[in-house]
Design a binder for these strands. Structure first.
Lengths: 160, 160
DNA sequence: CAGTATCCTGAACGATACTG
DNA sequence: CAGTATCGTTCAGGATACTG
């Protein structure tokens, strides 16, 4: 097993003082970083979102997520299971049947993530046009890189 | 990861179409995925969080983020700038002075992310104990891998 | 069916050196 | 100061084959 996060990394848990919101970022060793990395993970969110609608079997997930490899699905599910976000149920039948479902913790994560999804959907147009503008500016720069300063704005100029 | 989004229900699997409102996840081409990837980025959030408190110069960020390389900071800032999340201001003075600040869009992103941070801080203890439990179960499995089935519970068993 | 074990590649990242 | 350019390495993750 070469993947995965460092298991058995015993970090000091317990009730540390709740550092204010402006501090979480600089603390690399902070748990937040780890969780964020899991959330950030390419497949985790997809799996969580799918499982939010219903419990599913391994192969179902493999089909639905589509793009995920068998190995990565396994790894992802194991991580989520380890973090207590999904629960794995094995039915001892002859063709093995395994089902995955969100735990209550997983459900809360899913709703927390939803706000980000909403943000993204809300602002995707803005972002797209910002990118277009940026790329246009870059293009202009390219064609202009021999010319002299055309807009003597005298102050600081934006977007180089 | 270039396409393969469409997963037409070509196989005979009943009548219900796979998913409804929760479509964002399966659409790889969707903007949501891209934004999520940016958010997921190792440094982006750190930079955004720092800039949320105040506008900063390049070297300041380099010092504050600490752990980031010069190259990665540049790359990160360029991406954020391109997405319209931060604004770059160049002062035409003799030792170059460049300042970065969040745009209003960047500010909204920051607050959206805060909810996730809060979630993480709220549940980090639960996660930590879930991990401990999982690891303990794995250990038990190891020591048990020669034994015969000791608990014929007849039903589905949890956590393999 | 639901995995595990191996091999391999490309993208990400860090380190370093150079520049306006 | 605030970058850009180049190189070397690591490693996440895909493809494939095997198994209980």
């Amino acid at each position: 097993m070469e993947e995965g996060t460092s298991k058995s990394a015993s970090y000091s848990e317990g009730t540390e003082d709740p550092y204010d919101a402006c501090q979480w970022d600089v603390r690399e060793g902070c748990e937040v970083r780890q969780i964020l990395d899991r959330i950030a993970d390419k497949w985790s969110l997809l799996v969580v979102a799918l499982l939010a609608s219903r419990r599913m079997r391994f192969t179902e997930l493999l089909r639905e997520v589509d793009g995920v490899s068998q190995r990565m699905l396994t790894v992802t599910l194991r991580q989520l299971e380890r973090d207590g976000l999904v629960e794995r149920t094995v039915y001892p039948v002859v063709p093995p049947r395994v089902e995955y479902e969100l735990t209550s913790l997983g459900v809360t994560l899913h709703s927390a993530v939803q706000s980000l999804v909403v943000w993204t959907e809300t602002h995707q147009v803005e972002i797209a046009s910002a990118r277009a503008a940026y790329d246009r500016a870059q293009q202009a720069l390219e064609s202009d890189h021999g010319r002299t300063d055309p807009a003597p704005g005298a102050g600081a100029r934006r977007a180089r």
